[in-house]
Amino acid sequence: MKLTDREENGVMILEPAGKIMGGPDASLLHDKLYEFIDQDKKKFVVDLSQVDWMNSTGLGILISAYTTLRNNDGKLKLANVTEKIKSLLVITKLDPVFESYDSIAEAIESFNE
C-alpha cells in the first residue's frame, strides 16, 4: 500500500493506494491519520478510489479514526468508495456510519454545509 496526503481548504485528504490488509502497510494509514489528529486536525477525507480492497484491519483503522474524531468535534468522511469496499461496508453494517461522496471535491464541499 502507498499513501499520499495533502491539505485543501482546511481538510486533510488521505489517498491510500493498493490493498489494506494489515501489517506494516496498514500501520502507515493508521499512523498518518493519528499524526494529523494529534496535530488537532478536525476534518478528514479518505479517498478510496485507488484501494483495490481492504479487510477488517482497514475497516478497523477507519472506524477508530472516525470515533476518535467524532469524540473531539471532528469528522472523517469517505470519497470514491469502490464497489468492493462498499459491499464490505454493507456486510458489516458500517455503511450508514460513514458519510461518503462521489468525489473528493464533494466531500470537501460537504464540510461547508
Partner: peptide, 22 residues
C-alpha cells in the same frame, strides 16, 4: 457478533464474520 450495537463501532472483531459472509 460485530453487528450488535455495542460492537458496531469497535475497531476489531469483524474478521471471521467477513470470512463467513464472503
Amino acid at each position: 457478533n460485530p453487528l450488535d450495537e455495542e460492537n458496531l463501532l469497535k475497531d476489531t472483531g469483524r474478521g471471521i464474520f467477513i470470512v463467513n459472509a464472503l
